[in-house]
Amino acid sequence: MANRVKQRMVAARLLQSLPILVLATFIVFCLMQLIPGDVAVTLAGENASMERIEQIREAYGLNQPFLVQYGQWLGHAAQGELGTSLLSGEPVAQTIARTFPNTLLIAVYAVLLSVLVGVPLGILAATRAGSPLDSGIMGAASLGVAVPNFWFGMILVLFLALGLQWFPATGFVSPREDFSGALWYATLPALALCTNGIAEVARQLRSSLVEIQSSQHVRTLHAKGLSPARILWKHGLKNVSVNLLTVVGLLFNKILAATVVVEAVFAIPGIGSSIVNAVLQGDFPVVQGAVLAMVVTVILVNLCTDLACTVLDPRIHA
């Protein structure tokens, strides 16, 4: 019974995401049209005449009304055909397959670090609420939220890559070819990305735990004679787990977006840098395809978060 409800929920959510996909790609397509610049000019090479530029515009269908261009792209995309890069001729699907795992690895790594460091800090602060330790942790968390991750990335490079030479300063290896090597390359970028995450997880966890601890049922548990540790682990954390999971889900999406900047700092061939390059050169099939991949990921992450929440708290039914 419950399973059928969940299946229906998953199906409904996936259906709901279709208009989001169309809208997101349409907005990006519109923005690409608004950006000054002309990919036909780039394609025509260094000393092309206006005639040559016109020819190219015609050959690539760039002279058609933009709704027609978008419609064509959407029609092909619906059939799983994302097209090829205007500039390099590489199939867009191949670009995504090559770059997205790198970005995902860094994002997942950063989220894991955020949770691993943020959760203990949050618990520590909550159990000692009002103490100097609590103020210290929360102060550091405020700083963590405020620090720009590209700047922190530079600092990490300076000390850990150029100074101590523990980690590489630039580049990446594909996780599919060499997973441990990829983790090594991903460490600094993930560290740079996780400061905001750690701070956010710690702050959210602390405030929900403090709220729970002052609730009536926790007071009853104390009165029942349960040890504080048992109350925290068995009742406190269970109650805040839904909150925490939601925060982590949102965090993943935020970190995914932030990889665009951090990839530039570390020269990582991820999907973020592909998008930046493609936007600068007006290579819209690549932009569209990469944005589509990111939107799909965000939708799936949100769906998984919601499903996990219903497992953690059976009162939630989508």
């Binding site: 490079v157 890559a161 150029l162 030479q165 590489p168 580049g171 700092v265 570390f266 020269a267």
Partner: peptide
């Protein structure tokens, strides 16, 4: 390795990736 930012390109040599 294609690294468009010249500061990052130099860092790649300094830290041994290039």
């Amino acid at each position: 390795s294609i690294i468009t930012d010249s500061a990052t390109r130099l860092r790649a040599v300094m830290s041994g990736q290039a």
